[in-house]
Amino acid sequence: MNNFTYEKLHNNLQYLKLNTIEELLDNCLEIAARDSKTTMEVLDYLFEQEKKHREAAAIERRMKSAGFPVKKMLEEFDFEFQSSINKKVIEDLATLRFVHNAENIVLLGPPGVGKSHLAIALGIEAVKAGISVHFTNTGNLIERLKIANREGILEKKIRDLMKFKVLIIDEIGYLPFDDEGAHCLFQLISRRYEKSSTILTSNKSYGEWGEIFKDHVIAAALLDRILHHCTTINIKGESYRLKERKKQGIKTGLIRHNSTEILEN
């Protein structure tokens, strides 16, 4: 290969933004010459590396856009500790059929039982599959919607949120809504109904949602849309945080006991 052809090849790779191929090309050509690799093998390897790099970069962009507060994976979830959860149901949800069918997921249970962990983990599975995801805390979401409503741009804000195939709304029920907040959330859920998937977590049973919204009519209408195509996961186990505190308590107790013995001796 003469210098002109070599420079032209690199320039074309840069122009086409095939940056990974351009970076690997020289070393790959040296290895190919040494090991007698065919042109087809060289091209296959280079384009495969370009593809992997672009896929990884795309996942990173979607992860950043999703706004997950922490990274939680399904394989990290302790199904033995939370025995009330049917692992097969979660594995089926991880196939992401619910996204393609525009179905919802609601995770119910007391604080600390892993609702947010599962919601984030399913969201990450969706991100890895090339699906757009957005995570938000309920309080933050309601505040953003209310500000948009007062500025006359609620419709625009809802359209922005409609761009995400999966919307995760965490911690419904920790704080009650005022009338404006309930109205805004109802508008959002109504627009997403049978179009996109929503994952919600709540520490309140469905029967208590009227108290959250301070309006049983709106709560019933909202639940009607959420539950029409929905999988409910009701977690009845113990809090992970309480479990860890108990462990720490036991360790602390042992340390104090041993210290007392040393002092007495």
Rank of each mutant, 00 (worst) to 15 (best):
residue 130 G to W: 06
residue 57 A to R: 14
residue 55 E to D: 09
residue 129 A to P: 03
residue 41 E to Q: 15
residue 107 L to W: 00
residue 60 E to T: 14
residue 136 T to G: 04
residue 88 K to I: 02
residue 40 M to Q: 13
residue 44 D to Q: 08
residue 122 L to Y: 07
residue 124 I to C: 05
residue 36 S to G: 05
residue 86 N to V: 12
residue 72 K to D: 00
residue 83 S to H: 10
residue 39 T to P: 00
residue 40 M to V: 11
residue 43 L to A: 13
residue 96 L to M: 07
residue 72 K to S: 11
residue 115 K to E: 02
residue 55 E to I: 14
residue 42 V to Q: 06
residue 126 A to F: 07
residue 118 L to D: 05
residue 70 V to A: 13
residue 102 A to F: 09
residue 54 R to C: 06
residue 86 N to R: 06
residue 36 S to Q: 12
residue 38 T to R: 01
residue 75 E to H: 15
residue 57 A to V: 14
residue 88 K to Q: 14
residue 90 I to S: 09
residue 56 A to C: 01
residue 42 V to E: 00
residue 137 N to I: 11
residue 101 N to F: 09
residue 49 Q to D: 03
residue 83 S to V: 00
residue 118 L to H: 03
residue 37 K to R: 13
residue 76 E to S: 15
residue 94 A to E: 08
residue 96 L to G: 02
residue 68 F to K: 12
residue 90 I to C: 05
residue 43 L to T: 11
residue 73 M to W: 09
residue 125 E to W: 01
residue 58 A to E: 13
residue 129 A to G: 00
residue 120 I to D: 01
residue 113 V to T: 13
residue 132 S to M: 06
residue 36 S to E: 07
residue 122 L to S: 05
residue 81 F to N: 01
residue 35 D to C: 04
residue 83 S to R: 07
residue 113 V to S: 03
residue 130 G to A: 02
residue 78 D to T: 12
residue 139 G to E: 08
residue 77 F to C: 08
residue 118 L to S: 06
residue 61 R to W: 04
residue 82 Q to L: 04
residue 97 R to K: 12
residue 98 F to W: 02
residue 44 D to M: 01
residue 139 G to Y: 02
residue 119 A to T: 10
residue 100 H to T: 10
residue 103 E to Y: 04
residue 117 H to I: 06
residue 77 F to N: 11
residue 52 K to D: 10
residue 133 V to C: 08
residue 141 L to V: 05
residue 137 N to H: 08
residue 133 V to L: 09
residue 81 F to H: 07
residue 50 E to P: 11
residue 65 S to W: 00
residue 77 F to P: 11
residue 105 I to V: 15
residue 105 I to N: 05
residue 79 F to P: 02
residue 74 L to C: 13
residue 92 D to V: 08
residue 79 F to C: 09
residue 84 S to P: 02
residue 49 Q to W: 01
residue 102 A to H: 10
residue 89 V to I: 15
residue 92 D to T: 10
residue 119 A to C: 01
residue 65 S to A: 15
residue 84 S to M: 03
residue 128 K to D: 06
residue 77 F to E: 11
residue 54 R to Y: 08
residue 50 E to H: 09
residue 56 A to K: 14
residue 63 M to E: 09
residue 48 E to S: 11
residue 139 G to I: 04
residue 61 R to E: 11
residue 53 H to K: 10
residue 127 V to R: 07
residue 102 A to R: 11
residue 97 R to F: 10
residue 125 E to F: 05
residue 130 G to S: 05
residue 122 L to G: 08
residue 132 S to A: 13
residue 79 F to M: 08
residue 99 V to Y: 03
residue 127 V to G: 10
residue 95 T to W: 00
residue 50 E to T: 10
residue 70 V to D: 12
residue 130 G to T: 04
residue 132 S to N: 10
residue 135 F to D: 12
residue 87 K to T: 05
residue 61 R to A: 12
residue 91 E to F: 14
residue 45 Y to Q: 12
residue 141 L to F: 07
residue 50 E to Q: 15
residue 42 V to I: 15
residue 122 L to K: 02
residue 73 M to Q: 12
residue 123 G to R: 07
residue 103 E to C: 04
residue 96 L to A: 06
residue 120 I to W: 01
residue 62 R to I: 11
residue 50 E to R: 07
residue 104 N to P: 05
residue 138 T to P: 00
residue 38 T to Y: 00
residue 51 K to C: 06
residue 136 T to I: 15
residue 121 A to N: 06
residue 63 M to L: 15
residue 126 A to M: 09
